[in-house]
């Protein structure tokens, strides 16, 4: 059966928004649970910086405290990057997709969204934050499970997985970036217990602590953690694994459904994968991890644009055209 271009786009974004919400819940949860520095506070501004939301945040709140950051990222419907806004966007996509997705997929997102709408600031206050984050995380995972078990395996399934993989890769780069971008303490702190604790936090946000320990039973250095998160071939949230997945999905999508389009997107994915595999982590860090992560993010944006152009019937972005010339 033909897949409407518009539906393909909705599927892609539904997957992205659900993945995004899950990551956001992970970040808030871990922030609350683990990141306490020696001075007893928690650096909540780092969350805002992670998503590059400083401007929007400071318009609404003077200080980045637990209360203000949680309010901003959980229930603030005027913040397009809040969990409630993200799930609303996922639900809008799912609503459009109701003729295409399973009833259970739609119903779960619908109930989840209504659950979020019913939350009050009191419900998400500090003693309950972890529980709310777990609820969000589990609802997103339930969505993943229902999708796996009920979504018909045709073109749409490929677009779903592509959206999920691209979003996941993007979220992972952001999570890693926060460390270098904002948490980087003074050179004296490097390797101190505070530094290690924050690296643990990064791993835990990505549910990667135990996986990391399998590869590195002892010790933990910024280099091994960054290398693991970026390049590990078995860790489901590593950037390499996500990009490999995108590559495989595009290839199979094109061959199975004999789609004539998408070659530019594939080229871009191959290019990114080759770059990821070509340099060891030490070299990446030496040249600047932040710049590297920025570049990966911009490549993911470029891949999204090419997918949109090839399959969603979008005009090519003017910027991309300039690059080609």
């Amino acid at each position: 059966m033909n897949l409407l271009a518009r539906y393909a786009e909705n599927i892609f974004w539904m997957a992205r928004y659900m993945e995004r919400a899950e990551n956001l819940a992970r970040v808030l949860d871990v922030q609350e649970t683990f990141v306490r520095d020696e001075r007893g506070g928690t650096n909540w501004l780092s969350v805002v910086q992670l998503y590059a939301d400083e401007e929007a945040f400071l318009k609404r709140h003077a200080v980045a405290s637990a209360e203000t950051v949680v309010a901003f990222y959980l229930l603030d419907a005027t913040n397009p990057n809040s969990i409630v806004s993200t799930i609303r966007a996922a639900r809008e996509n799912a609503r459009t997709l109701r003729p295409w997705i399973s009833t259970e997929m739609w119903s779960q997102i619908n109930v989840f969204y209504n659950q979020l709408l019913a939350l009050t600031p009191r419900d998400v206050a500090m003693p309950h934050l972890s529980r709310v984050c777990r609820m969000v995380k589990e609802a997103c995972q339930t969505h993943t499970g229902i999708t796996e078990g009920t979504f018909y395996r045709d073109q749409g399934w490929y677009f779903y997985q592509m959206g999920k993989a691209i979003e996941r890769a993007d979220q992972t780069t952001r999570l890693l970036d926060i460390k270098y971008h904002t948490l980087l303490p003074s050179p004296d702190d490097l390797g101190s217990s505070l530094d290690m604790q924050q690296w643990c936090t990064v791993l835990r946000s990505a549910a990667g602590y135990h996986a990391f320990r399998r590869v590195y039973p002892r010790g933990m250095t910024p280099t091994t953690v960054a290398g693991f998160i970026l390049f590990n071939e078995g860790f489901p949230r590593s950037v390499v694994m996500c990009v490999r997945q995108i590559d495989g999905l595009l290839t199979r999508l094109k061959s199975r459904y004999t789609l004539r389009r998408g070659s530019e997107a594939m080229e871009k994915v191959d290019e990114l994968l080759a770059a990821l595999l070509s340099r060891p982590i030490e070299a990446v860090i030496a040249d600047g991890l932040h710049e590297y992560l920025d570049w990966v993010q911009s490549q993911l944006i470029g891949i999204t644009a090419e997918i949109g152009h090839a399959f969603f019937g979008q005009e090519p972005a003017p910027l991309a055209q300039v690059e080609v010339q």
């Binding site: 033909n2 271009a5 518009r6 393909a8 389009r261």
Partner: peptide
Amino acid sequence: DLVVENHRVYMKTTDG
């Protein structure tokens, strides 16, 4: 989602 070309109706899909 629909266009008319040569007085025939088409829908825009992932494959044109």
